[in-house]
Simulated assay, not measured.
Amino acid sequence: MQLIFLSTLECRSADGTSATAQVSITEHQGAFRVLWAGETQDGKGEQEAWFEGPAWKEMLQAYREGLWQKRLAGYYPLVDTSLQTSGEGAKSREQLMLQFYAEIHHNPELFQELRKWRRQQAQKESKSAYFVATNRMLHMVTAFLPHTMEELRQIPGFGKRKAEAYGSEILAVTAGKERFGDFPLHWVYGEVDQGQFEVWLVRQLKSKEELEEQRERMRRLVLEGAEAGLTLKELAETTGQPRRELVLLLEELDQQGYNMEPIIAAELTGMEMDKLDAAGKLFTKHGPRFLKPVLQEWYTVEELEGQDLNNLYEKLRLLRMRLNHAMTAVGAEQPHSEDMAPEEEEALEEEAG
C-alpha cells in the first residue's frame, strides 16, 4: 500500500482541550482509499472511510467534501494544505481575518450611509458600484473607523488611487466616531477566535467553489443554446437565469472567442435594417465603450416613450458584439464591455461586493 497524502488536524473546544485527527489518501493495486482517523469527544478512536475505488476524480471529490464537513465542525490543519489557497488566491491570512472580524463588528448604520454614498458616486462616474468599493471594504471601514488618509490605506482594497479618489468623503463619515482599537490593526488577530475563523473561511471557500461550479454549468448551457440558435427568451427559460445575466455571460464568452452570432442573429431578427445601420454608425461616432450616448441618439425622446430600456440595452450589447467581430477582421481596437450605462448599474447595485 502506497501513502499518497497525510494531514493532521486539530479541533479545540471551549474548555481548552483539543482533539487531533488525520486524513490520509492511499493507493493499492490501482484502488484509492480516503480514511479519516480521529477521536470522539470521550477520547475513543474512530475511523471513517470516505472513499474506496479506482476513480481519481471521484476520490478527490470525496476527500474535499469530507474535509469541508470536518472543517465546519471545527477541525483545521496544523500545517496549512492547498485547501486554503484554492479559493483566496494571493490574499493573506491576516487580510482574511480583518474581513472576518469586520463582518461581525461593522456598524450597520454607517454601512448603509456609505452604501448610499457609493451608489451616488458610481452614478457620477458611470460605473458599477463595486468598482468604487465592495461591501467587504465598506464593512472594514465601519468596523475599524479610520480617521486619517494613512489609516484608510491600511484597510485592504484602499490603495493609493482609491484613497486619493474617495478618501476625503469616506473620512467625513468616520470622523469623530469612537472606535474599539487603534491603527495599525495588528490587535485584530488576537481578537479573532481561530475556530470560528476557520469555520467562516471554509464556508467562504465552499461558497466560491459552488458558484464557480454553477457558473461552469451555466456556460455549457449557454454554449449549447448558442449552437442551437436560441433566443434570449428561450435561453432564460432553459437556464432559469435573468436575461441581463445571460447577456453579460454572452459578452464574456464572445470575448473568449466563442461564436455567439447564432444568438445575436436570432435575437435581432425582425429589427429594421435602418436601425441596425444607425447603431453601427453611432458606435463608430461615440466609440463602443459606453452605451448611453449611443441609445440617446439611436432613438428620439418621443420614440423612447413606452419602450423597454432594458431590451434596447440588450440589443445594443448584442450589436456591439457583432461590431467587435467586424473590427477584429480589419485589425481595429476591439470594444470593451466592462463599463455599463447608469440604467444597468442600478440593477447590479444589490450585488455589489
Rank of each mutant, 00 (worst) to 15 (best):
T300W: 03
V301Y: 04
V301E: 11
V301Q: 08
E302L: 11
E305Y: 13
E305N: 10
E305T: 15
E305I: 13
G306L: 13
G306M: 14
Q307S: 04
Q307I: 09
Q307P: 00
D308T: 14
L309E: 02
N310F: 06
N311D: 15
L312H: 08
L312C: 10
L312V: 13
Y313S: 02
Y313A: 00
E314C: 08
E314L: 05
K315G: 00
K315D: 01
K315Y: 02
L316S: 00
R317H: 11
R317D: 02
R317N: 05
R317P: 00
L318Q: 03
L319I: 06
L319N: 00
R320F: 01
R320V: 00
R320I: 02
M321V: 01
L323M: 07
L323N: 05
H325F: 01
H325K: 11
H325R: 13
H325W: 05
H325S: 04
A326H: 14
A326S: 15
M327F: 04
M327D: 02
T328S: 14
A329S: 08
A329Q: 12
V330A: 05
V330F: 04
G331E: 11
A332F: 10
A332V: 05
E333Y: 05
E333T: 14
Q334G: 03
H336V: 10
E338H: 12
M340F: 12
M340N: 09
A341I: 07
A341H: 09
A341S: 15
P342D: 08
P342A: 05
E343Q: 03
E343N: 03
E343T: 01
E345M: 11
E345D: 15
E345K: 05
A347V: 07
L348I: 07
L348Y: 15
L348A: 06
E349C: 08
E350W: 11
E350K: 10
G353F: 08
G353M: 04
